[in-house]
Design a protein around this nucleic acid. Structure first.
Lengths: 253, 253
DNA sequence: CTAAAGTCTGACGTAACGTCAGACGCAAGG
DNA sequence: CCTTGCGTCTGACGTTACGTCAGACTTTAG
């Protein structure tokens, strides 16, 4: 229950905490760190927070959402905002690196799930399979069988690591979506929309170059020689479904 | 230096650690936790690791890469692999959530950077601006001015949160790339490739629907009424450049 | 034999609170 | 006036995965 004190609106710990979506214990903690001291205390020592405290708490919560440590936050808030932006940019770069790590881990699990689900690997080799997937992510030697050095260099220049990893994820999401819609008619709008996304991803990789498209095609035909973990990026059902949908798309298109 | 002991190859702490890319201290720690005990000890108490220990250490490192805690790893390794896959899937979901959080934070910083760089907001309002960006991510009320409920519902159904966030990021990356190539001739291959990516993203949003494309266009024309943080997703220079490149693209294509 | 390196076992420090525990404050009912 | 019940306060320990000493050995090269 908020307290009316003359002109000022004061909040007790619990109300104040709820208003900002944090716990009372967190308030204690911030107080302890000198990060946010309540405006006033009652004689008995109860913390009383005012509106201005709320603004500060907002900033703290926000910066925490952005991944900053309380120590950094304290520094930023006490030394004013003359380099907050720079700090944020540094912070962003750190987070982008974390995201790359997460992406690789997620992809690795996805890859292992597929390899094990396809039954080509026994469940007992789960660890080996995961390690293979992880190594495949950083080792692209095998691609040289299908592309010239020039083409790979060109791809590498155009596709930064971030874009590559995002593309991998795009594929994973799309394949999931397709799998969830295998019962659809390949001519249906849903299927056609999936086909459109598929075409878009392929084009995103070849970037309109017919040579690349040709090599990509030869790569896919040579399934027998792929590294084990690349096998079964998608199931035969998915392949068949997309093939049909694409045929209809071309006809319509 | 590895020790030759009859038929067995034994490694001392440091060599073993380096072989696996961890620190000696980490080995102590794992030993302490009972996660990885060395095969043997010398009389003086020096740890000696064998090949079989290496396999186990590999698994530990791998699962750690996948974001598991040592406690979880210990459980998994001791109870055999009969539900490792399930654990991995659970783990993946947790990581995907972390990824979403990271994405939102990164986008928020990006958004604030743009808003501040464009000079429409004074640097002193940096916190307010960030909060606005974060709120805009979860509040799409303003879009209703341009799309019908039906269209928004349709978009929401087709574009899961993950896809939306990824798309936002796609745009950010592309815009960065364009900015880095403003000095190019809009007819150059580089520029045309950027234009292709641009068109692809637009199509990814409208999914081929002419109504959506029309609404998107009207949204962009009504720049004056966008929420502040949506302003200047890209600079006027970028807009002009892409306009030219797209014109040439249409002509050529 | 000595100095330089490597190893061992504690033990404290880190980040951001969660979770008691023990003591006190405050308003309402008996 | 006293008792409940609920809220708050101040420690203080627990958590995670080691990093970083510190003090005492062991091993090895010269």
């Amino acid at each position: 229950m908020p307290e009316q004190k003359a002109q000022e609106m004061l909040y007790q710990a619990r109300d104040f905490a709820e208003k900002a979506g944090v716990t009372v214990r967190a308030l204690h903690h911030y107080d302890h760190l000198g990060l946010l001291k309540p405006t006033r205390r009652t004689e008995a020592g109860y913390r009383l927070y005012a509106e201005q405290d709320f603004a500060r708490l907002q900033q703290i919560v926000t910066l925490k959402f952005l991944g900053m440590s309380l120590k950094q936050i304290k520094l930023l808030l006490q030394q004013g905002h003359f380099d907050v932006l720079l700090q944020l940019q540094i912070q962003r770069q750190a987070m982008e690196e974390k995201r790359r790590h997460l992406d690789r881990a997620i992809q690795a699990i996805h890859g292992a799930e597929r390899a094990l689900a396809s039954g080509e690997k026994p469940n007992s080799e789960i660890y080996k399979t995961i390690i293979e997937v992880i190594e495949m992510q950083t080792n692209t030697e095998w691609l040289k069988k299908y592309y010239t050095e020039d083409q790979l260099a060109d791809l590498a220049k155009r596709n930064t690591p971030e874009i590559m990893e995002k593309a991998q994820n795009d594929w994973a999401v799309l394949i999931q979506d397709v799998e969830a819609n295998l019962q659809e008619d390949p001519a249906s709008p849903t299927a056609q929309s999936l086909a459109a996304r598929w075409a878009k991803l392929v084009e995103g990789f070849t970037m309109g170059s017919p040579e690349l498209a040709a090599n990509l095609s030869s790569l896919y035909k040579d399934e027998a020689n792929w590294p084990t973990t690349f096998k079964k990026l998608y199931s035969d059902e998915v392949e068949a479904f997309i093939k049909q949908a694409m045929a209809i798309r071309k006809q319509a298109g």
